[in-house]
Write a protein that binds this DNA or RNA. Structure first.
Lengths: 339, 339
DNA sequence: TCCTTTTCATGAAACGTTTTACACCCTTCC
DNA sequence: GGAAGGGTGTAAAACGTTTCATGAAAAGGA
């Protein structure tokens, strides 16, 4: 690690023949006479000077760095979210310190500690550790789970999403609904997908059933469940709401293998609004789409405007329905070739 | 932004009734008598002290932060890469500053500047700007493109990958090959996928053709090309190598729509080894897999061991072939239900 | 012309650490 | 019993900024 020492303000000051304070003023937009300003800028360019934000942060205690603590960027939803949050931050002159936790509760705690040491100006986190200790001194915004009564939480409107899924399935002709889900590690906002779904069904007198499988068991249980409900190629259900798009894909494949046609016999709606390859033009399952972009924007702006009088503690953003290949409201394929 | 001032070493020193230097020594593992050490640790815990890495960085000029400059985490390959690099860094006690460029050359330059101001200990970048100016004073490792004669570049062995694709297609029975690609914004390592493919075909006297479409034209040109080559439902080719998995998916859909069976009539191999939903158990196209994990590890360790005597300038890591649903060496589906 | 105001450059102090030189105490040994 | 020497704790000087109190010079008003 042999680093060439980079020039400092002092060097620039010497080169330009001005005082240290003047150089600082130039770089902070404080009024400086044009002659001096030019001299300083020239000297800075000549020396290849870049400001040392560590030193600045030490004085101002504003680092303009925000930490994002997330389970992993390999899942497309998190990848998307990371991307949008990064963009929202960059637009506001902030940089992102990324900490990946891989769903390990202990790691989540460690990450919070670590980024705190970096004196970030704030933390946005998507975590599953119910006992997470926050640093009181650092503004915090959570996603998809309320971590603390004082920390705002941003999520999609999971409840309405569940309702919307049920409603859409019904509108598109399904009369016997099924809710399938992998139970999240810990209760959080996404649980409401189910509550919304069930409440709509009950209110509308549409028969339904719910199946929740712990996330340790993998997908196989679903295959057995489906098998048991199919007699002579005829399933006793005709509409499924899966609590994630991933599960929707898996169920789609299973039904195909079991000889059930989708969306002909059974329609499927997922949740998330994942785009394959991050490209909205790619084929997809029908889905309740989380407003990822808006969630990112909201998380960031909420975090940065911390301290406002009445900060809501839970912010649910509206979801939308997207027709994909697993419901009967979409002609497949044509759309791929656009763009 | 009303931050509560967090305690400093000075506070800890006062609380513990010892000198500043002693506190520092405790936190740096310098030998301190047990009695003092305990007093300091107790005081630190009581005050909730965490070290200020900015201040430390100012003294040591080692920030233990590495910047990763990448086009975006929304594409699964980049999402994966980000994840692995993050892990590799975390394992070594480093944190990641993530800068997303969205493929905008100007943004790439700006990101390099910005992260330099943060005095990162190094930069890993995946960029497309041919005129990128690097900061001489900061260690730099590139991915997939040689940015400068002095900066090491890590990539998968694209050339061998191309060869392997051709060879596999042939082994699995294809006799008339096609190379399809979207031309990258700028020449780089991935171009070699084509060279490898073509060289194998020539050496093995297997007839082939190559089609390269600029990335501004979208996918439609491919549809026309395919149509023109299909007479009475019989294509004049029976094996395709696509330069990315994404393209492979698109081609797969197009062929399906055109009534060509895959892998029956035509086999397809992509490049990248993308997993749907980041999950290796999900269905996929047959592909030449980039060793993403190894690339990440190599990039990180190369960067951190900067200054070694003979640093190779280009490091190509071996690729592997993965059977998916688009070649005849794989029974579809069964594998989804495992795990 | 003289006095007041405004503008703007300066130098020093501070931010929270690390590091170095130094002083201290306790052994150990002749 | 005194000198030499190994720990260990202390104080002060950095690191590269920002900021604040001074003071000088230029500008404006009568």
């Amino acid at each position: 690690m042999n680093r060439i020492k980079s020039p400092t303000m002092k060097d620039v000051a010497r080169e330009a023949g001005v005082s240290l304070g003047t150089v600082s003023n130039v770089f902070n937009g404080v009024s400086v006479s044009p002659a001096y300003k030019e001299r300083v800028e020239e000297a800075a360019k000549k020396l290849g000077y870049t400001i040392n934000r560590y030193a600045r942060g030490l004085k101002t205690s504003e680092t303009h760095v925000i930490a994002f603590v997330c389970p992993g960027t390999d899942h497309p939803f998190f990848g998307d979210l990371t991307n949008y949050i990064n963009k929202a931050l960059a637009d506001r002159g902030y940089r992102m310190l990324l900490a990946v936790t891989q769903f390990i509760p202990d790691m989540e705690q460690r990450c919070i500690r670590l980024v705190s040491e970096n004196k970030v100006d704030g933390i946005i986190a998507l975590t599953y550790n119910p006992e997470l200790q926050l640093e009181e001194s650092i503004p915090f915004v959570s996603i998809d789970r309320q971590c603390s009564p004082t920390a705002p939480c941003v999520s999609s409107d999971n409840y309405s999403g569940g309702q919307l899924a049920a409603q859409k399935l019904y509108e598109l002709g399904s009369r016997q609904l099924l809710f399938l889900s992998i139970a999240p590690k810990i209760s959080g906002e996404p649980d409401k997908r189910r509550y919304g779904f069930e409440s709509w069904c009950r209110a509308s007198h549409v028969p339904f059933e719910s199946v929740v499988i712990p996330d340790t068991d993998g997908f196989r249980p679903f295959l057995n469940i489906l098998k048991a409900r199919i007699r002579d190629g005829k399933p006793d259900f005709d509409g499924i709401f899966c609590n994630t798009d991933k599960l929707a894909y898996v169920i789609l494949r299973m039904l195909k293998e079991l000889g059930v046609s989708v969306p002909g016999q059974v329609q499927i709606i997922g949740y998330d609004g994942i785009n394959m390859f991050g490209d909205p033009a790619m084929p997809c399952v029908s889905s309740i789409c989380q407003p990822v972009r808006e969630m990112a924007e909201t998380a960031v702006s909420t975090l940065l405007s911390r301290g406002r009088p009445s900060m809501p503690t839970l912010i649910c953003l509206p979801v939308t329905y997207r027709a994909g290949g697993t419901t009967r409201d979409r002609e497949e394929l044509a759309y791929i070739y656009e763009r």
